[in-house]
Write a protein that binds this DNA or RNA. Sequence first.
DNA 1: ATAACGCTCAAACACTTGTGCTGTCAAGTA
DNA 2: TACTTGACAGCACAAGTGTTTGAGCGTTAT
Lengths: 215, 215
Amino acid sequence: MRSADGLSTRQEKILNYIQEFFAKHGYWPAIRDIQTDLKISSTSVVAYNLKALQDKGKINRQGKVSRGITLPNTLGVHNGAHQVPLLGTITAGQPLPDPEEVDIEAAEKVDVPLDLASADKLKDVYALRVRGLSMIDALIDDGDIVLLRRQDSANNGDMVAALLLDENSVTLKKFYQDNGRVRLQPANSTMQPIFTAAENVRIQGRVVGVLRSLF
Amino acid sequence: MRSADGLSTRQEKILNYIQEFFAKHGYWPAIRDIQTDLKISSTSVVAYNLKALQDKGKINRQGKVSRGITLPNTLGVHNGAHQVPLLGTITAGQPLPDPEEVDIEAAEKVDVPLDLASADKLKDVYALRVRGLSMIDALIDDGDIVLLRRQDSANNGDMVAALLLDENSVTLKKFYQDNGRVRLQPANSTMQPIFTAAENVRIQGRVVGVLRSLF
DNA sequence: ATAACGCTCAAACACTTGTGCTGTCAAGTA
DNA sequence: TACTTGACAGCACAAGTGTTTGAGCGTTAT
C-alpha cells in the first residue's frame, strides 16, 4: 500500500518512529532501535527502507555514523515539535486557500507541540493565521494561528471551517446536521447559531487546534 | 582556570563544541569527535570531563548509547519547543496556585513551540489548564492551556490574571489603569468591562499564550 | 512460462564508539 | 617525605551499529 507521498506503510511507520524517538530521547534512533520497536525481522529491511526514504528526500543520513539519521525539516529543531505548513491567512468572506495550489515545501512552517497532537494525526494538517475579528464567536482572536485538517465532511460537534455558498464566506463553527438542515453553533454560547440547508454548506476543513501568542 | 559555573576551560570548550556540533550536523557528537576536533590527546580525557559535566547537570547522557549526549532544554539554543511546567488548573473563583509551593521539577510539562515565544522569554512561565467556561470572555475555552508569566504588575493593554479581592475570584482580562481606577476589559469586545479600584486588584500573572487542542 | 522487480529474511562482517584499566604528573597537605 | 586529589595519557576491549551478501517469495511484465 502506498500513501500520497509514495511511501509504503512501513516507510511511513519508520518515518514516524524516527520523529517520535527523537522527540522522546533527544537523539536519533539506531537501525536496531527501529527494528526492535517496529518488530521488523531484520536490520537489512530497515536499511533497505531507510535508503528508500533517503532517495525520496524524507530523511538525511550520514553514512557509517551511528545514529546519524536526521529529519530535514527538524535539523536544528527538536524536542517534541512537529512542523506544519503555514499556508496563509483566513479572513471573513474569503474561502480557504487550496492546499494543492500552494508549495508546501516552500511555505513558512509552524511548530506544533507533540502533546497538542501526535505526529501521525498532524498528517494532513496545515495552519492559517487569522486576520480580523470575524472568528471571535469561535473564541479565535485576531492574530491567532488555527490548525486545520483538510476534510470535506464532519461529525456532529466538530469545529469546522464552513463555506456558506449563499454568502460566499467562511466561518469557524461547531457543526451539527439533522435531516438535511445544518446548524452552525458558535463556540461562544452567548452568540446565536446559524441555521441553513445542507446544500448551502461546504466543509473545507476541521479545526484541530489554536495557538495564540501574546508576547 | 574556572568560570563562574565551576567549569574548567576545557569543560566549557567541550560544552560549546557539543552545542555547535549539533547545530551543524543535527545529531550529537561521539566522544572521538570531541577528542579529535578539540585536539585532546585521549578519549578518556573526554570521558572524564563529560562525567564532570554530567555531575554538574550541564549535559544529559545515555550510557552505552552512541552519540547519546544531549543538552538539557535550558541550554538548547534553537529547540523547536521549550518545556514549561503545567502547575494545575485554573477555575473561576479560585486564586492561582503559587508556583513556589509546587514541585516544578516533578510537574507535568507542556511543550511550547519556539515560534510562539523564544526560550528566554519563557523563563518564568508556567502553564495552567482551564476548567469551565468562566474565561470565555477572554476567548479561552474549557480545556485550553494558558501560559502565564508570574508578575505582580502590568502595563496597559496586557492580558493579565487578576484577582479581585472583593469577590475573591480570578479572571483573565485586558488591564488598563488610570488614576487609581482599573478597567478590566474582556478580549471579546461584545462583553462588558469591569471597573474597580486599583486596591481591589492583585495581578497574579500575565497571560502570554493560549494552546487549544480539538483533536 | 520466464523474467524482472519490489520487498523481505537471516546471518555474518567490519567499522564505530563508549568504557575500563594502568600510569604519569603537578599541586596541595600533614 | 609520604599521601592524597584532580587532570591527563595511552591503549585495548567489548558493546553498539551500519553494511553487505545471498536467498526466498509474491506480483507484474514480456
